[in-house]
């Protein structure tokens, strides 16, 4: 059974490209538009990895991860967080929330696949 990855970003095109890349590598993908939307879509199903942007409307990535850690089904789910070079303060907040994997935007699809493979293989 293919592993499921959730991509949370407010950019539809980014979600599409990451989705295409992940799917072609053999993962199942679900998408969330922002933290709030993502939480509403996490209803107990198995998700092996979550990729989330930091800057999002409605609910940002840090709050999203903090909420995630309150849910028993997802508190240990690895999170890759997308960040900018200038986002050091966000990064320390994220690390406090338990995010260890960071990928800097902009990235190429291949780079994302590599980062994902370090945490789960398809």
């Amino acid at each position: 059974m293919a592993k499921t990855i959730m991509i949370v970003d407010d950019s539809a095109s980014l979600r599409q490209v990451v989705s295409i890349a992940l799917k072609s590598s053999g993962y199942d993908v679900i998408e969330g538009v922002d933290g709030k939307d993502a939480l509403s879509k996490l209803t107990g199903q198995k998700v092996h990895l979550i990729i989330s942007d930091v800057n999002m409307p409605n609910m940002d990535g840090i709050t999203f991860v903090q909420e995630l850690k309150k849910k028993p089904e997802y508190k240990f789910t690895p999170v890759i967080m997308l960040t900018t070079e200038s986002g050091e303060d966000k990064k320390s907040q994220g690390q406090a929330a338990g995010v260890k994997a960071w990928v800097v935007k902009p990235f190429k699809p291949d780079q994302m696949i590599t980062a994902v493979s370090k945490l789960i293989l398809p």
Binding site: D9, S11, D53, N55, T84, K105, P106, F107, K108
Partner: peptide
């Protein structure tokens, strides 16, 4: 930020 991120992809 979003445009930069997606454009990079």
């Amino acid at each position: 930020h979003t445009i930069k991120g997606s454009a990079g992809l």
